[in-house]
Each structure stands twice: as structure tokens, then as C-alpha cells.
Amino acid sequence: MTSLLAVLIDGSIYASWLFLVAAGLTVIYGVMRILNMAHGSFYAIGAYSAASLVGWYFNNGMGPAWVSYLLLVGAALVAGLIVGVIVERGLLRLMYGRDEILMVIITYALLLILEDGMKIVWGVSPYFAYQPYSELGRTSLGLLKVSNYDVALVGVSALLGLGLWAWLERTNQGKVLRAVIHDREIAVAMGVNVKLMFTITFVLGTTLGALAGALTAPAISVVPGIGIEVIVLAFAVVVIGGLGSIGGAAVGALLVGLSRAAAVHYAPEFELFVIYGVMSLVLAFRPEGLFGRTLARKI
């Protein structure tokens, strides 16, 4: 009983984290048809920015702890914005219109560049910013102890999901974006400024990635390579949900999160296996993912 509860709690925490990581990836794919391999690096950049800023804040004994939460988010926004604009304007813009698979390779090159870029900026020793995490304390649920920060993360992730959904469904800009997702040619014909939409989307996506990293930073030690681990998880989540679908990413995150939590509790040797196992299973029956669409070629 306790272990079932533990699976549910761990599963939802892990799922909300996965959703945070995957949301930006799926938004970018949905609008731009770019499966961004460098998304993990944006996550890592967010984590490094946040960890170094928050670490600096506490090491200098600056002030109240609540400020550090603002710093986390602020660091992510600034980092995501800067890197997003540079990458979109400086690299991707030159590459639009190429094969989807070539875009994967281009963003893979970007990943390689960013990975070392981070080593140059932040070095290779770990960064810690545990204060925002420990500050919130823990809650006991029977035998289980749950960190409040993790619980808050579930809330943040849910809010973010709702926010994205509302933005897409309820605002004018969202409508335009959906038009681009649905049929790019018609959107162009209707006079949508697709270039601008691409920039907005890409920056939004990188910022989401950076935010995911920043919010994760207090719970981990930030070291080189975290982005590389994360990206394949994010892939699994969005592919399960259907590339480009935000709702799909949420469902994919839940599926992966709960299965992994179950594996960790009942059969730890299958922890990693389970994630990709679920992905392969879903794809075997629904090649386009749970909420994806396939378009047959017109001949």
C-alpha cells in the first residue's frame, strides 16, 4: 500500500519534471518541424545559470531566501532568451526548409558546440544551489517523506501546462500559431508572418527548456553532461505523446513517470529499460504517437 502510494507520488513528481523538460521540445517541433537535439543543452544552460546565480546569492549571504526563487526563474528567462535568439537568428534561420532529419543533425551539431561552450564558461566542477530546495522542508505522509520543493514542482508544471494551453487556445497569437501548426502554406497565404512566429516559438521553447533546468538545479548537482541525459528522456516523452502535441507531452510524461516510478520500486534493474520500452510499445501500435497526426503524401 505504502509502496503504491510512493509510486504514485514519485511518479507524479517525475512526470511533472519530464513535462517541464519536454514541453519546449514539443512546442518547437509542432510549429517549426525541428526535432531539437540541443534542447537538453538549453536545459543545462538554464541549470548552470540558475545554480551559479543562486549559489553566488547565498555565498555572499545576501538576504531572504524567497528572493532565490525569483533568481532561479529570472536566470532561466534571461539565459533562455539570449541563447534562443542567438541560435535562431544566427544558425537556424539559415537552415529553414531543409529536411527534418537534416535539422536533427544540425541541432546535434549545436548540442556538441553548446556542451563544450558550457565547459568553457562554467568549468567542469559541479555547481550546487541546494538552498531553495532544502529551505522548503519536507512533509511526512505516513511512512513517506516528500520534499515540498518537489511538490511545488508538480504545481508549477501543471500551471505551466495550463498556461501554454490557454495561450494556444485562448489568445490571438495562439490562434495564429495553431494555424501555422495546422497548415503552414495556408498560414503563409493568410499573411501570417511565419518568420516572426518561428522566432517567438523557438525562444519560447528554449526558455521553457532553460526554466526546466533552472527549476531542477536545486535538486541536483549541476555537472557537464546533464543535458545529454535529459534530451533522450524528453524525446521519449514527446514521441510517446505525439510530436508537437502539448497534451500528448503531458500524457507521455505521466506514462513514463509512473512506469519509471513503478520500475524503481518493484524492479529497479528495469529502470531505464522501462522508459524506452514504453516508447517502443506505444510506437509499435501508434507510429505517430498517442496524439500525433500523420499526413499521407498526396499523389
Binding site: 526535432l35 529536411d99 527534418e100 536533427v104 510530436l243 524506452y276 517502443s280
Partner: peptide, 17 residues
């Protein structure tokens, strides 16, 4: 395309796991 790329990646990650 990307689905093949991702699925082949997933299979090798399964072995890794």
C-alpha cells in the same frame, strides 16, 4: 525520417539500460 532515428536511438538505449 526522424521516427526511425528516434526509435533506433531508443532501442540502443534499451540495451544500454
Amino acid at each position: 525520417e526522424i521516427f526511425f532515428a528516434m526509435l533506433s536511438l531508443a532501442f540502443s538505449m534499451i540495451l544500454f539500460g
